[in-house]
Design a protein around this nucleic acid. Structure first.
Length: 563
RNA sequence: UGGGGCGUCGUCAAGUGGCAAGACACAGGGUUUUGAUCCCUGCAUUCAGAGGUUCGAAUCCUCUCGCCCCAGCCA
């Protein structure tokens, strides 16, 4: 089922062609180059999978390289988070690499460029640089410092490096063409002064290379063959190539751009995610509603499901918005295979079986997976008092409702057929309890007389179930495209994206649940224990909290909507 | 009105001159002690539009239209 027998995307075609032509001696080396200035999200997962999969598929390697050339924004915690997230996703990268490891070499390259008179120290202020750059439709003007001598440039650059100047006083610029229709070629800045402390090099440097200079050279230094990046760098490719052409580098990697991932009802940009976190619209970077990989992990997404998703959505240059349901189905597919079945009642409704003995507790066998005998069975208990789901009872059920109602018979999964005899309500008319009878002949759920019972509902034994909280998540935004009509996406937040249920009753076996274990609560969906909740075998602690990862497909929900 | 890209089913996406894959969604039907899973069936005479080349075009040519990106000492 995995990528192998599938037809490839355009990048794969390019790689195959390159291998056929013995380009790079048939080698394939890719890299995933995150800037450690935030947490990874699903969009990164697409890039991670692409880069690692291409490398693996063609017996190559993929480097994890931190693009850490801007100390003002980068932090060690992000480096740690990114490393563990890439591992969690299922990829091995050996020792991580850092652009900052190349600072010395990058500096030498810059000097080489100066010596070739292909770079100069510019002393224009930031505002003047902007003015001289021109606009989209007008060419720029040469900087008055453009014709400084090599010696002067060398001297100034040395002094920049030694900390003689403040931020913004001087920059090192590539000498290309101020009239280029491509703004990236209008003498781009390649080094600037920054007095920030770098998470890895500390205060060793006060000048830092810019992305365009750093990235292509880092790629070349690592022997990258295919440098895959997103569409917005397409305009930078001429600069990528210019730099590598001007300098003596070990190789000249090929930059190939692809469209970044978009998914409806959510946002996938670091900036927007950051805003959601900082303005407390969600509860942190690992909020299970967020498409951050840490949030998805906490929600219960499996790495396999994410990898499979990245696999089936394809790679192209077309900007697209992928349907959330595709992601959810990848998850369901995986969880359906793996998750053991259990029973849990989210909104409990007490049921008393009036003809069941007071003091009896029976043990019943329940399958852990209906299609996989090898997953075995577990024992569940049954007694006179049980809980069923409030939603499984209707006082005036519509035609197609197969569940409980006055006088109706349903099957309790793995237990007995019961019939609703009486509905007890409180003074305000809310149903508080059902009095039912059971048919002792139907132990296990089958009627000896062969009568058909259409509805099967889940339940837990009131005597030994455990109390828990359950968090139900819904889409984060109301609108398919949160940025619709360029209104502030915050206004599109779904106020009901999180619902916490506090009085849930779960079958006893869940006492052993751990955050990394997925369960299917039959008929409800897939759930996992929240990783920030340590659970409680001892009653003095807080209640265990479970996250609903995703619902089951629900045909009834559709019928109920359009009867 | 500068430059760079992109337009194939509701959503993704194959297709590279020989007669529109697949997935999700959707609609029917079957199995089922989860209204789950699973299994069938249906679902683009048409590829942004218009011309042209060709026996033959989503694929080649021309023009038009639409959408995205670029004016950080961010990546």
């Amino acid at each position: 089922m995995e990528a192998d027998n599938k037809k490839g995307h355009f990048i794969e075609s390019i790689i195959i062609k390159d291998i056929e032509n013995n380009k790079n001696k048939g080698r394939v080396i890719t890299r995933f180059p995150p800037e450690p200035n935030g947490y990874l999200h699903l969009g990164h997962a697409k890039s991670i999978c692409l880069n690692f999969n291409m490398a693996h598929k063609f017996n190559g390697t993929c480097n994890l390289r931190f693009d850490d050339s801007n100390p003002a924004k980068e932090k060690q915690i992000y480096i740690d988070s990114i490393k563990s997230t890439v591992n969690w996703l299922g990829f091995e990268f050996g020792t991580p690499l850092f652009a900052s490891d190349y600072f010395e070499k990058l500096h030498e390259f810059a000097v080489e460029l100066i010596k070739k008179d292909k770079a100069y120290v510019c002393s224009l202020s930031p505002e003047d640089i902007r003015k001289y750059r021109g606009t989209l439709t007008e060419p720029g003007k040469d900087s008055p410092y453009r014709e400084r001598t090599v010696e002067e440039n060398l001297d100034l650059f040395t002094r920049m490096k030694s900390g003689e100047f403040g931020e913004g006083e001087h920059t090192l610029r590539a000498k290309i063409d101020m009239a280029s229709p491509n703004i990236n070629l209008r003498d781009p800045i390649i080094y600037r002064v920054k007095n920030a402390s770098h998470p890895r090099t500390g205060d060793q440097w006060c000048i830092y290379p810019m992305y365009d200079f750093t990235h292509c050279l880092s790629d070349a230094l690592e022997g990258i063959t295919h440098s895959l990046c997103s569409l917005e760098f397409e305009d930078h490719r001429p600069l990528y190539d210019w730099t590598l052409d001007e300098l003596e580098t070990p190789c000249h990697p090929q930059q190939i751009e692809f469209a970044r991932l978009n998914i409806n009802y959510t946002v996938l940009s670091k900036r927007k995610l950051q805003r959601l976190v900082e303005e407390n619209h969600v509860q942190g970077w690992d909020d299970p509603r967020l498409p951050t990989l840490e949030g998805m992990k906490r929600r219960g997404y499996t790495p396999e499901s994410i990898r499979n998703f990245c696999d089936i959505i394809g790679v192209s240059k077309k900007e697209s918005r992928i349907d959330m349901t595709i992601l959810e189905n990848c998850l369901r597919d995986d969880l359906n295979e793996k998750a053991p079945r259990v029973m849990g009642v989210l909104k409990p409704l007490k049921v008393t079986i009036e003809n069941y003995p007071h003091d009896l507790t029976e043990e019943l066998a329940a399958k852990n997976h209906p299609q996989k005998e090898e997953k075995g069975t577990r024992t569940i208990t049954f007694s006179k008092e049980i809980y069923v789901e409030k939603d499984d009872f209707m006082e005036n059920p519509p035609k197609k409702f197969f569940r409980l109602g006055p006088g109706r018979e349903v099957r309790l999964r793995y237990a007995y057929l019961i019939t609703c005899k009486e509905v007890i309500k409180d003074e305000s008319g809310n149903v508080t309890e059902l009095i039912c009878t059971y048919d002792p002949e139907t132990r296990g759920g089958n009627a000896p007389d062969g009568r058909k019972v259409k509805g099967t509902i889940h339940w837990v034994n009131a005597n030994d179930c455990i109390d828990a909280k359950v968090r139900l998540y819904d889409r984060l935004f109301k609108d398919e495209n949160p940025e619709q009509d360029k209104q502030d996406f915050i206004e599109n937040l779904n106020p009901d994206s999180l619902k916490e249920l506090e009085f849930c009753k779960l079958e006893k076996s869940l006492i052993n649940a751990a955050p990394e274990n997925a369960y299917q609560f039959e008929r409800l969906g897939y759930f996992c224990m929240d990783s920030k909740n340590q659970g409680s075998k001892d009653a003095t602690k807080e209640l265990p909290v479970f996250n609903r990862t995703v619902t089951l497909r629900d045909a009834w929900a559709k019928i109920a909507k359009n009867p």
